[in-house]
Each structure stands twice: as structure tokens, then as C-alpha cells.
């Protein structure tokens, strides 16, 4: 990537955004009819699809049953054509397993599992196109899918990345910026209470810059929350209108 500036002199990034601008977020709930809840989200060029099945009886592995809460089961998978270079294994490699585990931990903390003892909630996320911020798109799509399925949560979970390149923090890193080797921080948080559910950082970042980047990521999550919230309200009022009209 030599010769390609991440931030130009006027302060514009490669895709024309400013350093604290999010990519365009488009979302749709209720994409599939057979799943209990489903959602599709596009963050710039990253496309993610999430489906939720449950709560239902624990199927495989009787050992997983918890007597006082529901078991959350997640699977993360990337389509083979999602990345620039064809990916031969959609799921099962270490990175996917790690992502699945993080998703599970994130949603276990947020879904009110005490309401569904001895049952299982499945969350499956599929990345159709990967252009940076994969984990964030997954979390946002899964939040919408869980809302679509009607499973109660303590709050939305919104995720956003923030990076630090050339002495300035950047919001919502795309793939090109990721592969330039700069450090970036992925934050998943509950926007109203500002509590962080998951925090992950790659590459080297000086401790003094940590606060700035964390602040920017927090702001980004709140912006994502605003978009998702508006979308959910529109969707619900639409469905309500359809139901009462007929």
C-alpha cells in the first residue's frame, strides 16, 4: 500500500469521509420468513446477515442445559466470496471460532437469559461481503435480529471500530485502512449506559492515545445506535400500520 495515503492533506480519507464519519448504514429486519428473527445490515461495503432461532429446546448436547437461564449459541461464518481473495473455509478456522465465541459472550451479557430457563437461543451470522469492521457489522445485525425475534435485551448492543493513523484517530475502519497495519480498536457497547461489553485491540497503540481512540469509538457506537433505533421504530410502525389496516 505504498503511495496510498490514508488521509489526504485536506483531511479526507480514501473513500471521501472525514476522520470521524461513519460509513453509510442501511438495515432491514425480517428478511427471512422461516427464522424467528432475521436482519441484514450494510455498513459501507460490508454486508452481514443475521438470523435468530429460539428460544427453543436445547437440541444437541443435554449437558448444555442451564437450569436457570437460556444458553446462547452463536456461529460466525464468512462466505467464500466475501473477501478479495477467495476464502476456502467458510467456518471452522481459528478466527471464526474466536469471533463466534466473542459474539456469544457479548450476547450472553445483554440478552435477559433468566427469562428462558432450560432453553437455547441460536444466533447465526453470515458475512456476505467483507470490507473492514466485520465484527461490528455482525454485532449490529445480530442486535436487530434479536429484536426482530422478540427476545428481550437489556439494551441495544452497538459496535464500532476506531483506529489511529498518522497521529489522528479515525472512525469506522475499512479494509484498506486495516491492512495498512495501523492499530485499531473494536468496541461493542450498550449505548444508553455506556457500558463496554467487548473490547479488542490489534497492533500497537501508545497508552496516551488510548483515551482519544476509546472516546471516538464510543461516539461512533452512539451514532450507530441512533441509526438502528430509528430503523427499528420505522419497521415497527410500518408493521403495525399493515396489521391494523387489514
Amino acid at each position: 500500500m505504498a503511495g496510498l495515503e490514508i488521509i489526504s492533506d485536506q483531511g479526507y480519507r480514501i473513500d471521501g469521509r472525514r476522520s470521524s464519519e461513519l460509513r453509510k448504514v442501511c438495515a432491514r429486519m425480517g428478511v427471512f420468513t422461516q427464522a424467528d428473527g432475521s436482519a441484514y445490515i450494510e455498513q459501507g461495503n460490508t454486508k452481514a446477515l443475521a438470523t435468530v432461532y429460539g428460544p427453543h429446546e436445547v437440541r444437541k448436547g443435554r449437558g448444555k442445559i442451564q437450569h436457570d437461564r437460556a444458553v446462547v449459541n452463536c456461529q460466525f461464518s464468512m462466505a467464500t466470496f466475501s473477501t478479495g481473495e477467495r476464502k476456502s473455509r467458510p467456518k471452522g478456522d481459528r478466527r471464526s471460532q474466536e469471533m463466534s465465541m466473542h459474539l456469544r459472550q457479548t450476547f450472553e451479557a445483554v440478552i435477559v437469559t433468566e427469562l428462558f430457563p432450560r432453553s437455547q437461543i441460536d444466533i447465526y451470522v453470515q458475512i456476505l461481503q467483507a470490507d473492514g469492521g466485520n465484527y461490528c457489522a455482525c454485532v449490529n445485525a445480530a442486535t436487530l435480529a434479536v429484536i426482530d425475534a422478540g427476545i428481550p435485551m437489556k439494551d441495544y448492543v452497538c459496535a464500532c471500530t476506531a483506529g489511529f493513523i498518522q497521529d489522528s484517530p479515525l472512525l469506522d475502519i475499512s479494509y484498506v485502512e486495516e491492512s495498512a497495519g495501523a492499530p485499531f480498536l473494536t468496541v461493542a457497547m450498550m449505548p444508553k449506559s455506556e457500558q463496554i461489553v467487548l473490547l479488542e485491540m490489534n497492533s500497537r497503540l501508545h497508552a496516551d492515545n488510548m483515551e482519544k481512540v476509546l472516546d471516538l469509538a464510543t461516539q461512533g457506537c452512539k451514532d450507530v445506535f441512533a441509526v438502528l433505533d430509528r430503523h427499528v421504530r420505522d419497521h415497527v410502525s410500518e408493521s403495525h400500520a399493515l396489521m391494523t389496516a387489514s
Binding site: 427471512f32 422461516q34 427464522a35 446477515l49 461464518s77 462466505a79 467464500t80 467458510p90 441460536d122 453470515q126
Partner: peptide, 16 residues
Amino acid sequence: FFVDCSANASPEFEGR
């Protein structure tokens, strides 16, 4: 050709 039955279609397609 490569076919991938995503877990989105059914919880039974999870894993392998």
C-alpha cells in the same frame, strides 16, 4: 463448485 449450507437456513446446518 462449492456449496455452503449456511446455518441461517436451519439450526441443523450449524457446524458440519
